[in-house]
Design a protein around this nucleic acid. Sequence first.
DNA 1: GTCTATACCCGGATAGAC
DNA 2: GTCTATCCGGGTATAGAC
Lengths: 204, 204
Amino acid sequence: MTADSIRNAALFHFAKDGYEGASLRAIADEVGIKKPSIYAHFSGKEDLFMHTLVHAFHEVQRHTLEYFRDHAHLPLEERLQGLLAWFEQEYQDHASARLMLRNCYYPPPELYSQVMDLVYPFLDGMERALTRLLQRAIREGDVPPVPAEQVAIAFMTFLDGITVEIIYGSSRRYKRRMDAAWPVFWNGIHSLNEKAHPIVPEGD
Amino acid sequence: MTADSIRNAALFHFAKDGYEGASLRAIADEVGIKKPSIYAHFSGKEDLFMHTLVHAFHEVQRHTLEYFRDHAHLPLEERLQGLLAWFEQEYQDHASARLMLRNCYYPPPELYSQVMDLVYPFLDGMERALTRLLQRAIREGDVPPVPAEQVAIAFMTFLDGITVEIIYGSSRRYKRRMDAAWPVFWNGIHSLNEKAHPIVPEGD
DNA sequence: GTCTATACCCGGATAGAC
DNA sequence: GTCTATCCGGGTATAGAC
């Protein structure tokens, strides 16, 4: 279907150049049609952009669920750490992820609220999913009891910190951060209940 | 001087609308001059942008140094945690910080390498400064011995994760992350030397 | 240095034939 | 649905008077 291939071309251009930077002309060229033909499928640039963005969110969500489904057998630490490595790959391989991320941070001002109606539910859903994951891991004895919601939020923070280096695009810098920061996170969550700082993670 | 006021107006527009989104017309209007007058001071949009960006980096760097100088007497934990709160304020109060951040993540494609020549040295300088700060704190017994460089990198990661919520602009969400993630970071760095918890670095 | 006037281009969008 | 042709507005940039 033509609409799909337009959306697909738009995906790459919006991801690379942003909403203002991308041009319908370039998108049409890539599909192999003329600019006005786009208007047979979308009412305008905004419409095309929003369709593309919604589709990108769904793609990323679908892939994320697949990741968790395919790695449900791993211990929690590997599953969480693996999620970060997985996400780096996702970012490099799929323009959906790049488009999503870019517009989480810097949506086009005139579409701000429409975009945020996608962003916030996504983030909140992610956080809830992580919380449930943690609660299950605790029940099953995979990790010692930690405050699940707090850890989920901390993990999201950590994920975003790593993501920055993914955007920068240097694999070396990314790995460096990962190696340095992961132990801090992982050790840190095990001592949340004990208030003093010599922390000896007990009985697990 | 007129050039300065042009740069200052440009700062706000570039920070808010991005490079493509900002228009010389709007900038000239704000200064109270006509569009062509800008060309008496800058060779074009790119030139104006780069001047503005360099100036913004210097500003942020200067403010950061001031923060550390003015808070040198505080214990390390408060100094580091305070840096995050300070940075949120800096982001809200100073367009320099907003411009810098935006262009660290998404520079205009045609100026990519020029922008990155500012970004990387800034980040690396920040990391080195943190490392030295930590080493001094360790020497002075303010914190137990921790691997300074690793902690510096982890802190930068953490800072970026928090920064994301600063960009989102919701103070509530920011505070929520801060409260959840800070204890994880702070406790986490104190257990780096104790290997009690098995951290499996992936084979190198 | 600043203005007016204007050239030039490229963006999104529309009309209407096929 | 796709095309050609065109419109309109906005953008950067320049020429030349003052």
